[in-house]
Design a protein around this nucleic acid. Structure first.
Lengths: 356, 356
DNA sequence: TACTCCTTTGCATTCGAATGCAAAAATGCT
DNA sequence: AGCATTTTTGCATTCGAATGCAAAGGAGTA
């Protein structure tokens, strides 16, 4: 086949204003080239930043492109350049409203640098297995995981040279690119504050144990509570959801002996469940009879019904960092790993008060 | 170039167990073909459902594929088949927690039929313009819009034969594929109920006027309120966000003369803002001194602090329908449009009571 | 005008999988 | 076994854009 001489639909004599998009057929770079009277390569170059093209050429091509409503085919481009401009984003399902916030910010940041979010909702590690395969099939340029991803799965991705950035989770013994929020200072601060307010008996509503963020936060809380109160900490477990926060409070309060006056919840959703349960079901006054603090600082934690005292993650900056990190690794696959740790920020809401 | 005889990396004498994935190089169908000693077409067929392949062939190919960790390249496949398996999903930003629910359900449903969600967050029609171009570039198989999309933009998509499904919004004078929730019956029911409870003075907290769902809901409310109370309706406008619901209540209450005893909010987020403002700022008892009802039925509207009486959309079924509709149109571009209308469902929460 | 040197352009090939068509193999039937 | 039929397989081409290389064009100098 003679090159640059593609099979045309009908034989078009006039050559002027060749039917664009007939029955949905998209204009290709060849169509544009023909109309502008240049080569396909020229068209391609006009749509590539920094390519060597004369002013005159650029104008002619752009005019033709506009006329035909031509836009480069990202799929074809992806095939040849080996970059899809897609980034897989893994978040968890409906239980925790923290994820939508992260997801939306990530999408925005990706969008700002010309990348698109390919969304995966993952609620267990088994699901994550399928996700990894899907992402691989779609040739994603990278993957940002704010959700489950097993060690094996991560290693597969590593082997396949797919940049992975962990968002607020990581394996302690493996090198990884990580964006993380460290609430240590704020935990210290807030527990001290509670102690100053006269609290002596603390409870902890934690998340599932396989979750790393949960474990870290728990460790901080335990250490700090012990150091200030010396007493043992009552613990109950939830699954990060509103409902489980409510249930956990029931567990704690029905457990018997001496009830806590301050409760630390490992995330805001559970704190809201806990607070509602305390007020609406147990009839406790929050904060007067029960102080509640938590982690995350999601938008709704500041609704007037809750006004949680919580440790906020700088989600915006973290998302920006995550996006930068995937890109960095994509362009330098062998550079050493990086862990970007952001400080939390204490939001003082109305959910704590002096011990009764 | 002799076909089926691709340039190999180093000249490999043994031909057995050819280095897979060296420096991240992915195995291609050619690699699998070579290892299995068959043609590339055969490999391709093995990964295509319903293709004519003998049992023996399939086994050999699958074994080789597994060994090389081969998975078909979705990008290359998309190029030749003209189907990307990507569906653009348009949702709005952070203000209204209704969208995350829709988004997650849509993603799930898409995933169930082998499609991937390409996420776009859109907060204004200008942004939607860029989105349309992006979606076009990525050759999406369809687009589901639960957010802004102007008439022009829709027409562009139509012309380009990209299946579009509107999720809870549409242009009244254009043929479209639509999934919609019609709350007419429930509006009637709930307003009647309020009237029975002795309410005479109603207020409406509405959304921005350009929004169609908002207009429809407002129309229903106005009609029904007038027919039962005859009196005029106090109206205030918000932007669907929590904060704007609170502000709107202030507008209403400070407006003067006789205050309403029942407020209809056009979505749950504003209702929550409104309720919090009433209770925490104005010191009103809800529902005793002020009844509140709303639309959407999002998860958190049922948190114990709110327990809104609201008209829930059957989001799960709607999302399933939307996904089916994009697929239907993708396979039959010229069939006539369809509008699937689902009934709302009244959730009776604790946010209404007899008029004071 | 003749000759560099630099910029711009076109040619040909490439990415990886799917598919129409024809050849080959397997199957059924007499 | 011989032949017709069906099923499998391979060949060659295609999708649309990017890019290394060489050819053509243009600017600058002597």
């Amino acid at each position: 086949m003679v090159s640059n001489q593609r099979k045309k639909n009908p034989p078009d004599g006039d050559g002027q204003n060749v039917v664009p998009l007939i029955k949905g057929r998209r204009a290709t770079s060849y169509d544009v080239a023909r109309l502008a009277g240049v080569s396909q390569s020229a068209v391609s170059r006009c749509f590539k930043q920094g390519a060597s093209v004369s002013q005159k050429m650029r104008e002619r091509v752009m005019k033709a492109a506009e006329e035909l409503e031509y836009k480069p085919n990202a799929i074809a481009r992806g095939l040849i350049t080996q970059r899809s401009n897609l980034v897989a984003v893994l978040v968890s399902g409906r239980l925790n409203l923290y994820y939508p916030e992260v997801l939306f910010r990530l999408t925005e940041e990706l969008s700002n640098v010309g990348l698109r979010a390919l969304l995966f909702t993952v609620d267990s590690e088994d699901e994550a297995g399928a996700v990894v395969e899907q992402a691989w099939q779609f040739q994603v340029d990278g993957l940002i995981s704010a959700s489950h991803l097993s060690r094996d799965q991560y290693e597969i991705l590593e082997k396949r040279k797919i940049p992975v950035v962990f968002f607020n989770r990581y394996f302690t013994d493996l090198p990884q690119d990580v964006v993380y929020c460290d609430p240590a200072a704020q935990v210290e601060e807030i527990v001290d504050r509670l102690k100053t307010l006269g609290h002596k008996k603390f409870a902890l509503i934690k998340g599932p144990d396989f979750n790393m963020v949960n474990r870290e936060r728990c460790a901080l809380v335990r250490k700090q509570v012990e150091s200030v109160s010396g007493s043992n900490l009552i613990e109950a477990e939830g699954d990060f959801s509103y409902a489980s926060g409510a249930a956990a409070l029931q567990d704690i309060m029905s457990a018997g002996s001496d009830r806590p006056t301050a409760i630390v919840c490992i995330n805001d959703m559970m704190a809201m469940g806990c607070m509602d349960e305390a007020r609406q079901v147990l009839g406790l006054k929050v904060p007067d009879e029960l102080s509640i603090v938590s982690f995350d600082g999601i938008g709704m934690s500041q609704f007037a019904s809750y006004e949680l005292t919580t440790i906020r993650q700088p989600i915006g900056r973290m998302c920006k960092a995550a996006v930068n990190m995937v890109r960095a690794r994509a362009s330098a696959p062998d550079q050493s790993n990086e862990k970007r740790v952001f400080e939390g920020a204490l939001i003082e809401g109305g959910s704590i008060a002096a011990a009764p």
